[in-house]
């Protein structure tokens, strides 16, 4: 018998704490850590900016001004592009594209990936076969997959959406399948089996809640990957097509005028960085909270 962890005694914990859902407690505690607070604040700020862009700048992202390619100034804090359009306004509209892309594609990808990963519930053969297929997808790094899809679908939003969706499947699937396999040998799952609980009930009551942690953390990580995929494909010209601005498109344009107006790329890069850092901090905080005992 090892020195087992002690259960908190009657003195240590008030009754209310004993009745709090431990999953919820951990997620909330993640958001209270410094990383969680900073990450969430950044993301809320970015989200608001993207949401309010049409309200703040009802003129849209295509309004041209008299000058072109000026640096940062008080009037145009990110400067002006080659057509005299305000880069800040364009960046906010670009942020809308990026956020709407990842906030739809990533959760969907996680959900579909989880379902695929759990196909082993139906039959072990099916599960193993699906896993094999997902392993093939892993062989294609996100951008390579994107290149393939763009080749088929033409550059644009749908290709980006599908790229993010598909490239997220294997990890989510692997996590879900891993949880299913690992939970099978857990004593509380065996106990439920001995009681006569069916496989589907096992899945819903015991396996999914325990797989959630890893999948939620992975989802936050994949948000960052999604932004990379959008930006990466757009930089090489395979992403969203101009004049629609996405952060990647703005970087692509900025790079072309990097000698004339070196600050062109700074603004969009900064926003991209903030989104990426925001999600990274959030996923870090969640990960630490989930793995804390």
């Amino acid at each position: 018998m090892a020195d087992l962890p002690l259960a908190p005694s009657d003195v240590a914990l008030p009754e209310a704490r004993r009745r709090l859902n431990p999953t919820l407690v951990r997620y909330l505690s993640a958001l209270r850590t410094p990383k969680g607070v900073v990450g969430l604040s950044i993301l809320v700020l970015m989200g608001l900016a993207a949401l309010l862009a049409p309200v703040l700048f009802p003129g849209g992202y295509d309004q041209q001004g008299p000058q072109a390619l000026t640096g940062m100034s008080g009037k145009h804090i990110f400067g002006v592009d080659e057509f005299g359009r305000d880069i800040f306004v364009r960046s906010l509209y670009g942020l809308r594209i990026d956020l709407s892309l990842i906030l739809t594609a990533v959760p969907l990808s996680m959900a579909v990936g989880t379902l695929l990963g759990l196909s082993g519930v139906i039959s072990e053969r099916l599960g193993a076969a699906v896993q094999r297929l997902l392993d093939v997808v892993i062989g294609f790094p996100g951008l390579i997959l994107g290149i393939c899809l763009v080749a088929i679908l033409q550059p644009g939003w749908p290709a980006l959406f599908l790229t993010i969706l598909i490239s997220g499947l294997p990890t989510a699937g692997r996590l879900a399948r891993g949880a299913w396999l690992a939970q099978q040998s857990r004593e509380y799952v065996l106990a439920a089996r001995v009681l006569g609980v069916s496989r589907w009930q096992l899945l819903v009551r015991h396996v999914l809640p325990n797989a959630m942690d890893a999948i939620v953390v992975n989802g936050a990580v994949w948000m960052v990957v999604g932004v990379y995929i959008e930006a990466g494909l757009s930089i090489v010209g395979l992403g969203v097509q101009p004049p629609t601005p996405s952060l990647g498109v703005l970087l692509n344009n900025g790079l072309r005028f990097v000698t004339q107006s070196p600050t062109y790329i700074v603004g969009p890069a900064l926003l991209l960085l903030l989104v990426s850092v925001g999600f990274s901090l959030l996923s870090d905080a969640l990960n630490e909270a989930v793995n804390r005992r």
Binding site: P22, R186, A191, L195
Partner: peptide, 25 residues
């Protein structure tokens, strides 16, 4: 057969820390 077994035979596991799902009351 499993239905029969489970209504008549039950099992108590060794590790009291592992045999209860920590997420369920």
């Amino acid at each position: 057969e499993l239905t029969r077994v489970r209504s008549s035979v039950q099992y108590l596991f060794q590790d009291p820390y592992a045999s209860l799902n920590p997420r369920r009351t």
